[in-house]
Nucleic acid binder design. Sequence first.
DNA 1: TATTGTTATACTCTATAACTATA
DNA 2: TATAGTTATAGAGTATAACAATA
Lengths: 167, 167
Amino acid sequence: MKRRRPSASVAKANGRSAAAPARAEKLDKLTLGQLDSHLGYFLRRLQIWVFQDFIQTLGTMKLRPAQYSVLLVIEANPGRSQAAIGQTLGIERARLTRLLHELERRKWISRRASGSDARSYCLHLTADGEKALVRIKSLTVQHEARLADHVGAQRHMQLMDLLRDFG
Amino acid sequence: MKRRRPSASVAKANGRSAAAPARAEKLDKLTLGQLDSHLGYFLRRLQIWVFQDFIQTLGTMKLRPAQYSVLLVIEANPGRSQAAIGQTLGIERARLTRLLHELERRKWISRRASGSDARSYCLHLTADGEKALVRIKSLTVQHEARLADHVGAQRHMQLMDLLRDFG
DNA sequence: TATTGTTATACTCTATAACTATA
DNA sequence: TATAGTTATAGAGTATAACAATA
């Protein structure tokens, strides 16, 4: 595979003084421009940090944030349907099916046929699932502590208060 | 394709009173359990709202949040390299290559060979790109206003103050 | 007709790795 | 050796649509 060069020809104006050393470019902090007027950008930036730390902290359990959220909601609402879980967490049906199959494969949840609606399943944690969740929670506590440390304990509290009221 | 039934057999215990009507299940709000002790979950929830509104608001321009952020950083830092842009926004090299090729295909940016380093390009907005950015910005202003309305003007301001200091 | 869950497809994003051209 | 950019692949997440079984 040949490296593709763009059609542009001029190789002169590079917008940097010839006196500046080349390696300065790497160290320079670029400005964000109008990006710093967007709350969404800052949310996104912190959220990426959170996911990366979560995935790293839960590395030994190989658990993704979405899987964790499903386990917690099943724990808090045993016996509910996939539709109810998905709606609560905003996870789309098709995606939830695959996610639950993975959790079932690992023997952490069970899916029993519902007595009242033959179309749906009742979701429960298994004994294995509850045991795993103990370990998982001890790791997520560490994660949350690192997050509080990252943003500062006070800011962590303020953000919790500000953000808790949305759904 | 046959619908696959799980091996579980018991169809009795569904954890819901037999007296309760079936459609109540859909209307019930499930509890989040310990999920409500995780700042990351609330960040994620609001961030999903932001992305969805952004993509919808920018629908006529077919512009994704990541593409928008790149346009703004190029505008604020004309002539810089892909490496510098990518590092500023935390976008990985390989991903940025494809993203920039798409922006170049739409004639919104130009990639000129650098005079000082033959390996790198200097990124600039084109005249078309600047024109498009005017329209784009008027849409993102609407988006930001909707976001402020969604979370409340005061909370919007507080969140901006709390989150702006991270990178 | 509508809903529950399944399968499939497509696109975005993230994470790697291998590669070229150059420093 | 290291860096800039390209290409490829794989997995996760998101958004659809079509389908079978049931309500």
